[in-house]
Amino acid sequence: MARKQSTRRTLGISLLAWVIGLILFFPIFWTAVAAFKSESDAYTLPQNFLTTPWTLENFGIVQERSDYVRYVFNTSVIVILSTLFGLLLAIPAAWSMAFAPSPVSSSKISGWAWLGIIFGCAALCFGVLYAYDWKPNNAALGIVLLLIFVLPASLWAWSRNTKDTLLWMLSTKMMPPAGALIPIYLIFNRNGLVFKDWGWANWSDYNIMDSFWGMVPLMTMLNLPILIWMLFTYFKEIPVGILEAARMDGASLWNELAHVLTPMALPGIASTCLLNLILSWNEAFWTLNLTNKFAAPLSFFISEYSSPEGQFWAKLSAASIMAIAPILIIGWFSQKQLVRGLTFGAVK
């Protein structure tokens, strides 16, 4: 029997929902209103937005002082390219994990053995190096680390079963990004360092700081775990029997992917794509730290109006509204798809 709810109860819950909704919406509302006020009106306390005059001057000033279109272009390049590259990597990854998972048995033991050997070798190498009083420079150290840690570690991850790999991917999202800022900053800023010390080629002038060459791969890698996770959950929903049926019907791998899997997973791919667009559009931590002009996206555009010389609330608000408008519009038109994507798996 369906639960019956009294009118009073329904009313109470609706009221509560509205109150919570309004509280959550308030900052955006405030921003939206402040953007249309003069700087002094926005700043004056107590605020009286109702009686003060409306104005569009902030938008004009913001556009005049910083090239909005350029920032939109930068953001679009980073967002679109990183989503494309992300999908290119994530679809095959999620596909193989969903439909050809590595078996749980045996690989577990061999995986741990691998890890043991890796660390054993690493310790031995360093022991030998220091015993011969060898002072490695940065370049040599970097190459050695790459060879003895990264390469076997990726092989190790490859030998693991699917569940472990998925968890490992998620774990990269557990680390606070600030923890990785310094190494990544150094890679961006002084990537020539390794080669310079070796004297093979002097690339130290070519750094990838504040360039798409740096930002696009970074953003791709940043969202890749989430992309793979989401696609994996989608693909998991596709019964493997249907793929087997396609195989029995004479479909080659390409036909199986093109005619059966992709059409069935299309809603999932679309909403994953959309989520990735939104996440990378709004990303601020890395973009604020690693760009300042040539590849600076909209988050940097907003931050320009929060400066040590003072807070320009009205202009800050205007910039924020301009920055979120495009993604808000995209999100609004695809909200059905997005909600479906975010709740997929939980609710069938």
Binding site: P239, G241, I242, E244, A245, A246, M248, V260, M264
Partner: peptide, 10 residues
């Protein structure tokens, strides 16, 4: 040709 328990239709 195979007929599956789950029908496995597209």
């Amino acid at each position: 040709a195979m007929v599956f328990q789950s029908y496995a239709l597209y």
